[in-house]
């Protein structure tokens, strides 16, 4: 296992960067295009006071895009992975929180969001589980990137080499 990681670490890092970065850029991009929906999606979790929730709803998509792009090109990967991992962990907590409180919403992870018809409760609960697992998987990629930030096709290496 250790040998395997040593041998392929550069490629694994690259793949993790693409997965985490790709998800963040796509999710952020969709939400950035419809800010009011993003703001009301955050408010639907009923965790933060309305105004604060709206502010977060406006900010989150742009943070996701910025972090996602950093991961994509491979610049400040450790910092980006840490931030991305924290964001994902917060998403997990938020979903578990609405789940536990019996609130039925669309997570708004990829745009949209908001309350859902009570008749669809079973489907929503299944979605919560899938979303939690998906985000947990993304946290794993973030953790890996935190410990092994340098891989193939990273701009950072290039920058350092030029400097040296």
């Amino acid at each position: 296992m250790k040998n395997f990681n040593e041998k392929y670490q550069g490629s694994i890092t690259f793949v993790c960067r693409l997965i985490l970065g790709g998800v963040l850029v796509v999710a952020g991009g969709i939400k950035a295009l419809s800010p009011s929906e993003s703001a009301s999606a955050v408010a639907a979790y009923k965790i933060l006071p309305t105004q604060l929730a709206h502010l977060l709803g406006y900010a989150l998509p742009w943070l996701e895009i910025a972090i996602g792009l950093l991961l994509f090109v491979g610049l400040s990967v450790r910092f980006a992975a840490l931030t991305g991992g924290i964001v994902m962990a917060i998403f997990i907590c938020a979903i578990i929180s609405v789940w536990a409180r019996g609130i039925l919403i669309d997570c708004g992870c990829f745009g949209g969001g908001g309350p859902i018809d009570p008749s669809k409760a079973a489907a929503v609960h299944r979605t919560y589980l899938i979303e939690t697992l998906r985000d947990a998987g993304l946290v794993l990629t973030a953790i890996y990137l935190y410990f092994f930030p340098y891989g193939v096709f990273g701009v950072e290496k290039l920058v350092t080499e030029i400097k040296e």
């Binding site: 950035a32 800010p35 993003s38 703001a39 502010l55 406006y58 900010a59 998509p61 742009w62 943070l63 895009i65 910025a66 972090i67 950093l70 610049l75 400040s76 910092f79 931030t83 950072e156 920058v159």
Partner: peptide
């Protein structure tokens, strides 16, 4: 580089929020 990157991320977020609002 690290501070530059963090500053740029902050800049993107702040501009984005202003634009969205």
């Amino acid at each position: 580089t690290r501070w530059l990157v963090m500053g740029m991320v902050a800049l993107v977020v702040i501009t984005g929020v202003a634009f969205s609002m």
